[in-house]
Design a protein around this nucleic acid. Sequence first.
DNA 1: AATCGGGCCTGAAACGTTTCAGTTCCCGTG
DNA 2: CACGGGAACTGAAACGTTTCAGGCCCGATT
Lengths: 331, 331
Amino acid sequence: MVGIKDVAKQAGVSIGTVSNVVNRPHVVAVATRNRVLSVIEELGYVRDESARQLRAGRSRIMGLLVLDLGNPFFVDVARGAEQAAHAEGLNIVTCNSGQRSDLEASYLAMFAEQRVRGVLLSPVATSGEALRAFRRSGTPYVFVDRKAPTSEASSVAVDDLAGGALAARHLLETGHHRIAFVNGPAILAQCRDREQGVRTALAGSAAELTVLDSIGLDVSSGLDAGARLLGMSPRPTAVFCANDLLALGVLQAMVGAGVRVPDEMAIVGYDDIEFAGAAAVPLTSVRQPARRLGRTAAELLLAETADTTVEHRAVVFTPELVVRESTRVRR
Amino acid sequence: MVGIKDVAKQAGVSIGTVSNVVNRPHVVAVATRNRVLSVIEELGYVRDESARQLRAGRSRIMGLLVLDLGNPFFVDVARGAEQAAHAEGLNIVTCNSGQRSDLEASYLAMFAEQRVRGVLLSPVATSGEALRAFRRSGTPYVFVDRKAPTSEASSVAVDDLAGGALAARHLLETGHHRIAFVNGPAILAQCRDREQGVRTALAGSAAELTVLDSIGLDVSSGLDAGARLLGMSPRPTAVFCANDLLALGVLQAMVGAGVRVPDEMAIVGYDDIEFAGAAAVPLTSVRQPARRLGRTAAELLLAETADTTVEHRAVVFTPELVVRESTRVRR
DNA sequence: AATCGGGCCTGAAACGTTTCAGTTCCCGTG
DNA sequence: CACGGGAACTGAAACGTTTCAGGCCCGATT
C-alpha cells in the first residue's frame, strides 16, 4: 500500500511537504504542488485516516445509533442529522441497534474506540450497563427521540405524553368508549410515555381502556395484535397503536377479517410515516417532526463538540394530530 | 484521555502486558490479569482503534453504501449484510448516497481512507469518476443489487430483465393493451433493465407502451407520475412502476382522483416491500430476496478478504411475482 | 549439579501521519 | 553592502497501539 513517503520520494520532496500539499495547499509553491499532486494521482495514494486521526486527535465522523432503521421515522431522523453534519463537513455513519441492548452496547463501544466526534443516540434504555460504560469513555453524545436531564446530556425529543393524550382525546371526541392501546416493549420510554398520555386523557371519562402489549414495533407485531383484538368480546371500537407500523399491521388484520375501518374499528397510529397516507384506509396518525429532530440533535452535538463549555439543552417538540379516513366519523 | 501507558503505570506492569490482557488474556498470569483489568475499569480505559488499526493494518469494519435508505428494500439488504458480518465479528456501518454521485464519492473516499475491510456497494453508476478513484485505492468491494463483470469484482444481483418481463407478461395476461411504465432515473441500471424487460415481453404483442420518466424512486415522484397518468387520453388501463414507492404514490393519486383500482387502473410495483400488502389496494409486486442479497454479498466479500486468491463471482437471483388485489381480474 | 524448558513479563521498534522548530534562499530596504 | 524578513522546504518528534525478541525465574530432567 502506497504511503506518504512513497509520494515524497517519487516527487523528490520531503514528507512534510506532501502533507502540506494535501492539508494546506496554499503554503506550498504552485510548481511543487502540481508535481506532488500528479505523483499522488499516478501512484493512487490514499491518505490513511487512522494515522491522521491518531496524530491529529480527532475524527471527522459523527455516529448515529437508532432503534430501528426499518421504521421510516428513524430514516427521516437520519436524513436530518446528515444534512446538519454535511454542512459542517462531517460524515455520519448510521448503525442500527434493532432495540437490542447487546447490539447497542457493541456499537457504542465501537464508536468510543473509533473516537468519533460525537454520537447521536436513540437508546434502548437510559439505565443500562452499555450506556454507563459509554459515558465513562468521554465521547460527547446527544439523545435523540428521548428526554434526558440536562445534567447528563443534551436531548431532543417529542412530547410523548402529549402525543398519547392527543390520540386518546381524538378517539373520545369521535364517540368511542371501548378503546384499545397496542403498545410496544415497555423498556422503551416512548412506549411508556405514550401509554401514560393515553391514561391521563382517559381518566375521568367513561371510556374503558384495554392495553395490549406486543413484542415489537413492526408490522408483524401489529398483525398479531390485530388477531388478538379480533378475538376480544366485547370488541373495542377503536384502537390506538404506539407507532404506524403496528397500526398498519392491525389494519391489515382488520381488512383481512372483513372488519370495516373506521365503522367497526377506528385506528390511530403514531409517527405519520409516508406510508400512513397510502394505507388501505388512510391512517390517522400523530405526526412527529422527524427530520427536524435529527437536524437539531446534530446541531446541538456540533455546538458542544466545538465548545465544551456550552451547557446542555433539552429541546422538546410538540406532536400534531393528522386526521384521515381511519377515524373519520360516518353517518 | 487515559491511554494504555496510564494503565500500565497504575498497575505496575509494562505496556506490553496491558496489551496482552486486552488482546490475548490467556498468556498473562491470572493475578496480573485481574489487577490490570481492575485498573482498566477504575480508569475507564478505552482502546484507541486508530492506533490499533494503524499498527495492526486492518480494520474490523465493513462499509455498506446504499442508494436509498428510505426504501425498505435497502433496509432489508442492510439487515442481511449485518447478520453475515456479525457472524464474523465485524461491524457494519451503513451510509446512504441518496442516489447522489457526489455523496457516493464522498463516502467511498471515506471508506478508503478508513481502510475498512471491504465495501458493499450499490452504485449510482458503474462508470463514474468516484468509482474509478475508489478502485485504485485497492479496497475490496462487492456490488449489491447490480451485475458486474467478474473481471472487475464480485456482484450479487437480481435479474431485472426477468423482473420487468414478469410484470409486463402478467399485465398482458390479465387483458391489458394500453400499458404505462413509470421509470426512475435512467442512470440506474436497475431502471434501464426493468424497462428493457418490459419492452422485450411486450414486443410482438398488440399492447401499446407509454414510458413515463420520473425524477426519483419515491412516493412523491409516484404521486407526480400518477397526476400525469390521469391527464392522459386515452388513459392506460394498467401501470407498472419501477419500484413500490412509486407504485404507492401512483395508487394514492388514483384513489385521490376516484379512479378505481384495479378496475380502471391496474398497478404493479417492484420490490414487494412490507407496506405493499398494507396499501389502499394491496399491491401486486415483483419480489426480490433483499435480505438474502445482503447476506450473500457480505459472505462473498468476507471470503475475498480472507483469501485474496479466491476468484470473483457473479450471483444472480430470480425475482418472483406476488399477485394481489391491484391487478386482480374482476367480473 | 548442570541443563533444559516453559511461563511470565519487559523493552523497544514500527505503523503513517501531522506539526513545528529550523534552515536555506532570495528579495527589498536602509 | 549589510541586514531583516518572508517564502519554501526539511527533518524529526509525537500520537497510542501491537508485536516480538529476549530476559528472568523456577521446577523438572539428565
